[in-house]
Every structure is written in structure tokens, then in C-alpha cells.
Design a protein around this nucleic acid. Sequence first.
DNA 1: ACATAGGATGGTTGCGCAAACAAATGTGAC
DNA 2: GTCACATTTGTTTGCGCAACCATCCTATGT
Lengths: 351, 351
Amino acid sequence: MSSKSSNLSVQSLNGQRVTLKDVAKKAGVSAITVSRVVNDYAGVRENVRAKVTAAISELGYIPNRSASILASSRSKLIGVLIPSLSNVVFNEVLRGIYEIAGPANYQVLLANSHYSPIEEERSIRTLLGQSPEGLIVTGGEQTDTAKAMLTASGVPVVQIMDKVESPIDINVGFSHFDAGAAVARSLLAQSYHKIGFIGARMDPRTCDRLAGFKSVLAGENCLDLKRVITNPQPSSVAMGATLFRTLMAATEGDCDAVFCCNDDLALGALHECKKMHINVPSEFGVCGFNDIEMAAYAEPSLSSVSVNRYEMGKRAMELIFERLNPSEISTHTSENYINTGFELLMRKSTR
Amino acid sequence: MSSKSSNLSVQSLNGQRVTLKDVAKKAGVSAITVSRVVNDYAGVRENVRAKVTAAISELGYIPNRSASILASSRSKLIGVLIPSLSNVVFNEVLRGIYEIAGPANYQVLLANSHYSPIEEERSIRTLLGQSPEGLIVTGGEQTDTAKAMLTASGVPVVQIMDKVESPIDINVGFSHFDAGAAVARSLLAQSYHKIGFIGARMDPRTCDRLAGFKSVLAGENCLDLKRVITNPQPSSVAMGATLFRTLMAATEGDCDAVFCCNDDLALGALHECKKMHINVPSEFGVCGFNDIEMAAYAEPSLSSVSVNRYEMGKRAMELIFERLNPSEISTHTSENYINTGFELLMRKSTR
DNA sequence: ACATAGGATGGTTGCGCAAACAAATGTGAC
DNA sequence: GTCACATTTGTTTGCGCAACCATCCTATGT
């Protein structure tokens, strides 16, 4: 309970929080000098710096970020808004973001919109209240108010994941429509002709993939909406199994392949094929999306679409920093859309 | 670029940030009244509140959190420190945390220690600088300085994941030693006697599991260190395959089961068994840890240990709130260790 | 020895907000 | 209509820090 025993880092001085002034008094210098030491200014003599450093660790001084931000209006904060934490996809995006932000001594403020534009707007308001120096948001489906707030904030804003119609500022992502279309074309080329789709959650990106997929099938006159099965609930392997069964029931077996809106669903479908003694890929083709690591280790290995998640996060963060420090002679023609692309990985679950 | 077109939420008034005062002037009231409206105080007359609300949305006012925190020393912030973002395990813990924090209007500050106590100490310092009202950290291996800072901070601190020797404050988790021991006992009971272990990363919790596992095998005189293969690199399915091959080579096949420190490794091992034509579970048993969703869908389904990740995050957050609002007549005897337990799930990858 | 430049250090102020107290307004009983 | 009291609104102040400018050293050249 009591920390009186600890002789280092006694963060409270008779109950009060330790401030710059306390450290200054202890070190026999002025408050601003302590501030300079804390912020690593060059012009502080070595012996002074040593005295101050000693006082800091003796008192366990921790600078008050709020006061610092208020006084300097520099926050070293980046706001990040994603729709889900339980989705592996965002995980790796986040890893990319943190990988760049961390070493630059920037802190990430993470908010979760739960796929709801209303919650997203609330979160944007909250994030902006913390005076972030940059913002990364998912997709382009913000409410008008949210977009207005982002624009007015005056800080770099990156919309990631999607190719966005008219970006607020910077856009890093790829066309899910094109990806869905590419899958459809590839499956057709592999002589599947009664191709279904199963999708869960159906967020804007999933819808785009479906739209691209449909447009190609429609062009080849082999689109049958009976073969499109969706469900608003979250994705999972179990959901994939369920949706696959639904698909087979709805089409009475008149279906020879399925494009699953992500790999979790696809793994569930694959599992279900095995149970129903449907041979993959000869009788039936299965293609997922995202290329999670398990895809390559499934039996048979799962065809999927690889997208550069980590890269998206990393690039988004880098672009913010480029904006923040135009010094670094980046002769970037300030292209505001970075296409991170995608790659079809046709493995053994398709012909 | 320009946002002059937007007639809602014009966040900047000729370049300046919109403040309480601006809103106050516009609404014809005092600044503090605006503050009261923003903070939902009861004693504001309806017509005044309406005027203020109108002015707020007209100007696109967003309260400055830093100023608010500085003035009130209430931050509505919870600091969370985890060792990795790419680990599914922490994902679900986070989900539990956000699920409780969000509705209570608390913001989560997430920091990543990359499994390094030094980075962890730095992150704790950073987090404490933001005046969080509570802190959630992973495990109990903080540096002395870090522990001193946490103690001195005066806010509730929850150590999660592990059962910690001497908790700083509150502890929510389970004994990884016991879990490892339980797996060993179960495998022995299933007549496996040459049981190996493969582990990656080898963080404190993994080590505890290994220690528990070893202690049981040693007690039965069937511990052979040749069968313990570890690697400091991160876990992955691919790493599981590699380690499994290493194990088989090192033991020259004199091994009839393996406890994998997590399910990713186990899935890799399972995959490798198939390639090497080793029959699971009759010839060889495989047991993982964590019970990720894929475990149940593997072929054969993977034996694993289920741990209540979501629950850990949720409980940790709830306990912080109980501390913060002792009002809610919680007759909790202020137990400072909550055991979230674990459950052996023996499926088809073991006898 | 002295002047001078340039680097190191200090004092004052204000960032935007809410706490604490003060004032004004409204309400009800008589 | 008046008074006492509750409710609503306003004024002043300080949170902890860094920007800004002033002042003080120190080293160098002459």
C-alpha cells in the first residue's frame, strides 16, 4: 500500500503532484531550465543538466502532458479510428502505425467506431479534443459533420483501407471493387461458372468487393442472386460454416464455387465442405480474402487475396510525418492517393 | 483544401481555435455556463442550454481536453500497457477493456511494450504523464522504478494475464504454472510419456507454463530436456512447423506428444505431422494453448487450454471503476486477486 | 586588462478550462 | 407586496507548462 519505503520516484510530495517548480527548487535552478532539460534542449550546460536530472529522478517527476500541450499546442499525439478491434486485419494496420509512431516518440490514441458512423463521429470529436497532430481514419463513409470537423481541424488526415471517392486529405488503400472483380474473373478463368458469395458484417469495403464481384459475373451472364448470402453479424469461422450451409441449401447444390468476404468465413466453408464430402477444388472452389497466415496452412491450402495491411498503416503514418515535417526534402508531388494494391494468391482450394 | 464552404462545424474562427469564450460570446452567456452545458450540469435552464447548444454546433466548438484535464485533474483516461499488438490474445483482452470503458465515456490510452521491461518503463512514464485515472498493465515483471511510479501514482493499477507474486495493487489473471502443470498431467493421463514442449518468444507467462509443465514431468521421472525446444522469435504457424521439425530431429523421433505454448505453434505442428505422415492422435499428441477459434476447426480438432481473455479485460476495467466510485455499495472484501481460471479442452489431437 | 559576441539561464505571461465563491434571479409562503 | 430561500448565472483565480524576451555569464580577440 504505502510507498514511503521507496527512495526513488516518490511521485507525490506530501500529497501534491511533483511539478517543474518542485524540481527547479530542489536543483536550485529556474523552472524553465528544468523544462529545457526535460525536452532535451541543446543549450543547457552539462553540470546543470546533471543537477536537474538528479532532482528529477529523486523526486520522481513526471511531466504533465496536459499542461505541456496547453502551453505549446504540440501534442505528439496521433488519433487513430478503426471500426473493430477483434478483426485481425486492423491489428496489422495498427502494428504498422505503431512501428512508425513509436520511434518518433508519438503516442497513438486509439478509438473504435464499432462500424457505426454515429459512434465514429463521436469518436472523432473526442480525438480532436486531444489536439492530435494527425488523424488516421478508416474508409470514407464519415458523416458530413465528421468530415467537416476533420477538414476544419487543420491537421493531416489519412483515410485508410479503402480507395475513397473524394478524400478529405490523404488516402492510403486499394480498390475493394477491383479486388472483388479480380477474384470473380480468376474463378471464371478456372472454369467455375456457378459462383456464390458469402459475406458477414457487410461493411462498406465488403460491399465494394461484392459489387466488383457481381459486376464481372453479370457481365458474363452468370450472376444469380440466389448465390449471394450475407449476414450482418460479425465474421467468424463458425459463421462461415453456417453461411456455407445456407448457400448450399438456397441453391440446392447448384453452385460450384464461393468467394468468401474474408478468410475466417472461407476456413469455415472449407471445414463444412469436408463434412459434406464435397471435394475441393475439383467439385467446388473456395476463395477467401485477406490472406491471413492460417490460409496457407489450411487443408487444402486456401486461395485468397493478399492485401498489404501492415504497409497501409506504415504508409499512412509516414505520410502524416512528411506533412508535419516538410523539411525533409520530399519532392513528392503530393499525390493524395497511395494505392497499396492487392494480389491474388490462388492455392489448392481452387483449380 | 479550404473548408469555408461548410456552414456547420467551422472549427476555426479566422484561424484561431474556437474556445469556450467564443461560444459564450455568441450565445450571450458567460464561459462557465457554456462549460456547464458541455459537461451536462443539471442546473442550467432549458432555454439557456438551447442557446448554448446552438452556438456550439454553429461554431463547431470542440472542448480542449488538455485544458479541461489541467483545470479539473479529471482525465477520463485509462492507460493500458500490453506487450504486443499482433497477438490475438491481447486483442480480446482489449475488447473487454473497451467494452466497459467506452459506455462509461472513458478513453483508453494504449501503449505497447514489445515485451521489453525498459520500453515498458518508458511507456508507464508516458502514460502517467497524461494523468490517467487508472492503469492496466500486463504481468508482474515491471522494473523497480516502474513499480515505484505505479505505486506512487495514486491511481488504481491492475496487473492482468498472470497471477502475480506480490501485486502492486489489483491482480486479474490465472496461474500459468498451474495451467502448464495441468496440461502435463492430462497428457500423461492419456498415456503419452515422452512429451515435448515447443515455445516461441518465451515471455514470462510462457516460461511459467513451461515451468509448471516441467515440474509435473520431473515428478513422474519423464522429463527430458532434449524434448524442450524454444526460440526467442515471435510465434507464428510457420514457427510452429519449424520448431516441430527441430523437436523431431533433436529427439530422433523419441517423442510421442508435444505441448505447444500457443495455438499458432500447435497448428503449425499439426500441419507438419500431416506432411510427415505422423498420425495424430494415435501416434502423436498435440496440445496448444489459448483456444483460438481455429483450434476447433483444425483437422483433427486441436486440444487446447481455454482462458478467459475477454473476461480478464472486462474484470480489470470493472475493478478500476469500482475503485473510482466506491459509492456503488460494493461489499467486496477488496480481494486483490481475481482468478479468471482456465479450462483444458481435450479434442481430437490428443487421445 | 577590457570589450564584445554568443551562449546559458531566468522572469513574466497566457494557453483553455473548471473550482470556488459571489451575485442575481426566481419561487413560494405569508 | 415582502421576505426567506432555492435555483441559476457570473467573476475570479490557478492548474503546469513553454514561448518570449530580458539578463547574466563565459570565452575570445585585441
